[in-house]
Design a protein around this nucleic acid. Structure first.
Length: 204
DNA sequence: GGTGGGATTAGCT
DNA sequence: GCTAATCCCACCA
């Protein structure tokens, strides 16, 4: 069912603004296929990183080897190493050369939970994906996924209605907008979004 | 219950 | 040499 299907999203989906995409991604599914199996989470928390007037954005100081994917095709993944130990997963947005992305901060685990728990050292379900570094471990996301197409895989995005057998579809979600977490520069900008009432968002 | 520090690398000053 | 879009565990109360 989940394996080897192309995403139901169009290329055009990724052409709207970064902040509106940060909201649209809430409730959508992130599917990871690997040799260890398939794992799926529903996105419940995101942050937008903008190219203009946003000092927290990696792209704000120009292109480097690490952030080059941020300036590439929208609809691809940008994965980078933070604090020398953890990976963070972003959806590249905006047009080629602009340098914007949406950081995925938390997921609700919906499928392949045993595999996620193995990767996460047996943590309880609410803590498997409740942070940007945690969800990349749970889904096995690493530097190999940097630059990968999110419509064709192996890491894929699907619409809110794509898997009614795995999790009840969320046609509408109530979105809360607040300030971003874990940054010192640009901390006052209201660019963090999460699904109201979700018990799977990251701790502040 | 809360606080403090360690892990470990890319990039900036 | 210092900081970072982080997490975890030891220690104290």
């Amino acid at each position: 069912m989940v394996e080897s299907q192309e995403s139901d999203l169009s290329e055009a989906f990724f052409s709207s603004s970064t902040t509106s995409l940060a909201k649209k991604l809430l409730g959508m599914f992130l599917v990871s296929e690997s040799d260890r199996g398939v794992s799926v989470g529903r996105i419940v928390e995101t942050e937008a990183y903008l190219s203009r007037n946003d000092p927290a954005c990696h792209a704000s100081k120009g292109m480097t080897k690490r952030n080059a994917q941020m300036f590439g095709e929208p609809g691809r993944g940008y994965v980078y190493l933070i604090y020398g130990m953890y990976h963070c997963f972003n959806v590249v947005t905006a047009k080629n050369g602009v340098g914007e992305a949406v950081l995925v901060r938390a997921l609700e685990p919906v499928h392949g939970i045993e595999l996620m728990q193995k990767r996460r050292g047996g943590k309880p379900i609410p803590e498997l994906c409740s942070g940007p570094g945690k969800l990349t471990i749970a889904l096995g996301i690493n530097e190999k996924h940097n630059g990968g197409c999110l419509r064709t895989g192996p890491l894929k995005l699907y619409s809110r209605e794509a898997f009614p057998d795995l999790a009840s579809p969320m046609k509408r979600v109530k979105v809360v907008q607040t300030t971003r977490i874990g940054i010192t520069k640009g901390a006052e900008l209201p660019l963090r979004f999460y699904i109201e009432g979700s018990s799977f968002v990251s701790k502040t």
